[in-house]
Design a protein around this nucleic acid. Structure first.
Lengths: 337, 337
DNA sequence: TAACAATAGGCAATCGTTTGCCTAACTGGG
DNA sequence: CCCAGTTAGGCAAACGATTGCCTATTGTTA
């Protein structure tokens, strides 16, 4: 086991006491330290490779300088982008990130959250699992600063959140298809109970209210799910001229199926992807897609959490911010007007 | 600030002492606890939402149950895959992950490593920055378990590492091009001094030794870099029929340039990508690429680190494992034989 | 019935930092 | 020369969990 040197070791070498060393290192005002002592201490610190113990410090009520982040799918770039942009904000303020991938499994989420609390994290950024609302109850009860990202906590309302504009995603995508003359479109989405996600379909439906038909296919959250839904539509609704994919993984699978079925995207059929996975414009791809504002979501969540932690906002400050989205035009939608 | 309950609070409520509560919770053998006491304690723990403090425990020499992971580019799927697969291994053993993105900046790396030590992480998985070899010196001196991933620590040799087969990547890719009749190929790589990465070019060169010509373009590690290198080749070496891209980001930019230049990939020109970014087979893409064994690298590193931590291997156990790679054939290489 | 093992649980030191409370030496004004 | 302020730094009590060392019951056996 590794041996770390302690304040006492340093003090001994410098010929002083632990408290003095502590004061030197934390350079707190209100304590006078002579230049000579300061130098002796710094020399000893250096020679002994002293590294302070965060555990001991946090035991004395200091911040742990750890932020916990729980996301449901690490492999989804939407979340890694959130993490990257949040990290930039936290890093500047000296916080490290403990990151967990819940895999959308409420059991894992519960475990992880408890472990975060055991680590006494200073705050949490959480995209809750679909059915694990209860898991965050303790966090809220204890009053640990937390910002929820993307999905809501159903049945709860006094918490901070950076939301994505799910309804807007659908509406924006559908609007574009309408503009280009598509009367019969399909929305391939996730077969989930999370209201947040059903909103996307609703946005599409509302945009088409009285102006065309929308076929909604709710399938599994995976490449296969996307493919399956697409095949259903191709088979049962040959009148459909455009597909909106609610999630990037489904989109990937669905597009593969369309291609395999011999369709040329942007000509024989049209596609809009909700989200900005890297592949939308890699290689010969150039998909029209809805940018959910991934990075913005991350940095806003981080900033909100920091103000919660620093107490710079009132203790009962609760706010939900909806991130704006935008349409990025590619060549995957045919103009059939 | 959040108030956590302590062992003492629990003890008071259960009508016993902190030590008993501690023994109940850790269920250590060698201490007798009556069923009645056990129940009273558990009840109190429950009612008070007791959550143990990892800081306090680690102060007493317990493991912190944290593993630090440093990667140079979070946005690169190679690394997120490593993290995901490592996490699966660690999670089963009760470790949490503190993840940092060094952005290949030695200064950031140094900061992060220090912070990891301050957290007293039980072990580290590190892909060192290009020029920050010194940064890990302290880790090695202190004997903190560490596994290096992918890149080497130049000038150091007694450390554990899961390496990627850089030379093999180049050779494998070049071999495929040769097989299909390409005599003049280009390798677009990173303008770095890291031997590890130069090896890829060497693999390509060796494969072509006496059997054709290789143009090597070393550019920046970005989309733009890939594009730039590609344009040079198109301009100065019209005889080149195939491109090998050393890194996924360069590949993305380079391929975009090829397309913009009116080339149809797999017909007019050929491409092999080293690495497996998601886009290699998304949409209408189907690139021949070299699978570096990303996930395997992560899980092997995690397992090696765990055995280092548990001391199940001799203290001076040092081992370098090279992960095998494989070629995944797509349609991006034309057969010109 | 004395002696011993098994069962049950309290006491207090310890881990490494932080910080409030002292003391002590100097400096300078009156 | 005395007292107040400034400068410098030691002492020791926390923080919360762990664990070795006790003590005090029982139950068991010779």
């Amino acid at each position: 086991m590794a041996r770390y040197t302690t304040l006492k070791d340093v003090a001994e070498r410098a010929g002083t006491t632990a408290s003095t060393v502590s004061y030197v290192l934390s350079s707190k005002s209100g304590r006078y330290i002579s230049q000579a002592t300061r130098e002796k201490v710094m020399k000893a610190v250096d020679e002994l490779d002293y590294i302070k113990s965060n555990s001991a410090a946090s035991l004395k009520g200091k911040e742990v300088k750890l932020i916990g982040i729980l996301v449901p799918q690490f492999e989804n770039q939407f979340f890694t982008r959130i993490i990257v942009s949040a990290e930039k904000v936290f890093m500047k303020r000296g916080y490290d990130l403990v990151i967990c991938d819940t895999l959308d499994n409420p059991g894992r989420e519960k475990d992880f959250l408890r472990r975060m609390l055991e680590q006494r994290v200073d705050g949490l950024i959480v995209t809750p699992t679909v059915e694990g609302t209860e898991n965050t109850a303790l966090i809220r009860k204890l009053g640990i600063p937390m910002v929820v990202v993307d999905r809501p906590l159903p049945g709860v309302d006094d918490y901070c959140r950076i939301a994505t504009d799910n309804y807007g995603f659908g509406k924006l995508a559908a609007g574009e298809l309408q503009r280009l003359g598509h009367k019969n479109v399909a929305y391939i989405g996730w077969n989930t109970k999370v209201s947040d996600l059903l909103l996307r379909a609703e946005g599409v439906r509302d945009a088409y209210e009285g102006r065309g038909n929308v076929v909604v296919e709710a399938t599994g959250f995976s490449d296969e799910g996307g493919c399956e839904g697409t095949l259903h539509v191709l088979k049962d609704h040959p009148e459909v001229t455009a597909f909106i994919y609610g999630f990037n993984m489904q989109a990937k699978g669905g597009i593969r199926c369309l291609t395999d079925a011999g369709k040329v995207i942007g000509k024989d059929t049209s596609v809009i992807v909700i989200g900005s996975p890297e592949w939308v414009n890699a290689g010969s791809n150039d998909f029209t897609h809805v940018d959910m504002g991934d990075s913005e979501v991350g940095s806003k969540a981080a900033e909100m959490l920091l103000s919660l932690i620093s107490g710079s906002c009132s203790p009962d400050f609760k706010k939900q911010i909806v991130q704006e989205c935008s349409l990025v035009k590619g060549t995957s939608v045919a103009d059939i007007k």
